[in-house]
Amino acid sequence: MKKIVSLAAVLLAASAFAGNLSFESGSIKAHTEVFGDSSIDPTAKKATSHLSMDATPATLKGTIEVSMSDLISDNKKRDTNMQETLESATFPKAVFEVKEVVAKGGDNVILKGAMNLHGVTKPMSFEGTVSEEASKVRIKVKSSMKMSDFGITPPKMVFLVVRDQVDLNVDVVLKR
């Protein structure tokens, strides 16, 4: 009987630290460039979290998704072209699935997983920090990808071509 009560107490204590994480605030920035303009920074200020984490960042798992229509820059014409290039009506979301968290010491981690973008799924890793304070988890990570790896042709403007590489910067706060 004592073993059952002890096991129940351990499970109850563990469940107090477990839980789903919902998006509270933050941004996901997708930076690229074209000759003469290094400030192409469409940003999404919301995301949908299907992430969960127990007591430590090493237990982070699940997915986070961004609606392509939520990516907005400082130029409406650019945004229209970007939505056409991304074919956001056909491929409305980008989804990253966390499959493994590699601890690098302190809050520093590598999030290994798979990115689904434009109907293509590829392995991808993000490096940065996952930290917790009170009932909030902050994920601040970055990575780079190529549009062409996901079947997206970088847009052309007259003689200029947008750089194929996109630098992703994620800084989000999730609440338990």
Results as ranks from 00 to 15, higher is better:
Lys2Val: 14
Ile4Phe: 08
Ser6Ile: 09
Ala8Pro: 01
Val10Ser: 11
Val10Cys: 13
Leu12Ile: 07
Ala13Cys: 05
Phe17Met: 13
Asn20Tyr: 08
Ser22Gly: 14
Phe23Arg: 00
Glu24Trp: 11
Lys29Trp: 03
His31Ile: 13
Phe35Lys: 10
Gly36Ser: 09
Asp37Met: 08
Ile40Glu: 11
Ile40Gly: 14
Ala44Pro: 02
Ala47Trp: 14
His50Arg: 04
Leu51Met: 07
Ala55Gly: 10
Ala55Tyr: 13
Pro57Cys: 04
Ala58His: 05
Lys61Phe: 04
Gly62Asp: 00
Thr63Arg: 00
Glu65Cys: 11
Ser69Ala: 02
Ser73Asp: 09
Ser73Phe: 02
Ser73Val: 13
Asp74Asn: 15
Thr80Tyr: 05
Asn81Gln: 07
Asn81Ala: 12
Gln83Asn: 12
Ala94Leu: 10
Phe96Leu: 03
Val98Trp: 00
Val98Leu: 00
Glu100Met: 06
Val101Lys: 01
Val102Ala: 04
Gly105Arg: 06
Gly106Met: 02
Gly106Tyr: 04
Lys112Ala: 02
Gly113Arg: 00
Ala114Val: 06
Ala114Ser: 06
Asn116Gly: 12
Leu117Lys: 01
His118Gln: 12
Val120Pro: 01
Lys122Ile: 01
Ser131His: 07
Ala134Tyr: 11
Ala134Arg: 06
Ser135Ile: 09
Ser135Arg: 06
Val137Leu: 10
Val137Ile: 09
Arg138Gly: 09
Arg138Val: 14
Ile139Val: 11
Ile139His: 10
Val141Asp: 00
Met145Val: 07
Met145Ala: 08
Pro155Met: 04
Phe159Asp: 13
Arg163Asn: 09
Arg163Glu: 15
Asp164Lys: 05
Val166Gln: 00
Val172Phe: 06
Val172Met: 10
Leu174Val: 03
Lys175Met: 05
Arg176Leu: 07
